[in-house]
Nucleic acid binder design. Structure first.
Lengths: 147, 147
DNA sequence: GTATATGCAAAGGGTTTGCACGGTT
DNA sequence: AACCGTGCAAACCCTTTGCATATAC
């Protein structure tokens, strides 16, 4: 096992195209990327690729389990390769910084949601919002990033 | 104490307008509402009110602490009156249903994020995604609501 | 009377879609 | 050769903004 990306696509009835390879490679290289950022990365190699192709390709790659996305805030989602360690995004609503934490820290919480609310949680899909260490206590600040 | 909504606005230097009153009342009545839904509710009383006024008004009401918003998924955020019990939204990515759980169930998780990651969590700001009881195990379903 | 709020219309991000062409199988 | 995938342009949803008018103070 440990199927390759192209096997994975074929298994699900999809074709192998340069665009799909390039988008997947871009996601792996960036580690975190919005569709727009992924487009830019892809265009370093193939300038003709279109944004709508990136969107359609990300959907396909997500379908076959090669990438996932998470929502950080109001803006575009960010995409990750699935072989990356599962992580949670911690977004500071004051300074806008985004930190990562291993998804395992939520294990107890996830277990509780399952037992108390019969809910199977995908904890990494939506970011956790709040305030980071350096902003906490420093009141009356600007909010550079909104959200 | 226990200031009224109009006192609250005045304290922060805002003016009292019918629109602000109507938007606040609509949010309280709906308990969960997107800007668009709030507009419709407001227009039952005052048909001339504009969507951009609803957006600007919600921003003001949030500023002075009378309402908050939470992100459920890709679509528009939902607004709540702040006197409602703080709650978390549990969104099923399969059937799209949204359940509520008291924010208190996350207390231990929030405490852990504070101690381990120096992060002060606003747990109710972003919904938790996953799969609900009835959808779990039932594979190959449609995804009526997306996201 | 003056500053703030509103309505309207236009513009802005992010995403999806229809269609004809081109590439993979 | 048949069908799927792509590029392009237009359309879409949600939200913000500029400006003239109206309104709360």
């Amino acid at each position: 096992m440990n199927t390759t990306w192209d096997q994975r696509l074929r298994e699900h009835g999809f074709r192998i195209t340069p665009q799909r390879q390039l988008v997947l490679e871009a996601v792996e290289r960036l580690r975190h990327g919005t569709p727009e950022e992924i487009l830019v990365e892809v265009q370093r190699t193939a300038s003709g690729v279109n944004l709508s192709t990136v969107y359609r390709t990300l959907e396909v790659l997500e379908d076959v389990g090669l990438v996932t996305h998470a929502h950080i805030g109001h803006g575009a989602p960010t995409y990750h390769a699935v072989d990356d360690e599962q992580h949670i995004h911690l977004v500071c609503d004051t300074c806008g910084k985004v930190a990562s934490a291993p998804a395992t820290i939520a294990e107890a919480f996830v277990a509780q949601l399952r037992s108390d609310h019969a809910f199977i949680t995908d904890i990494s899909h939506m970011a956790i919002h709040g305030e980071c260490e350096s902003c906490f206590g420093a009141l009356g600040e600007e909010r550079p990033q909104g959200e």
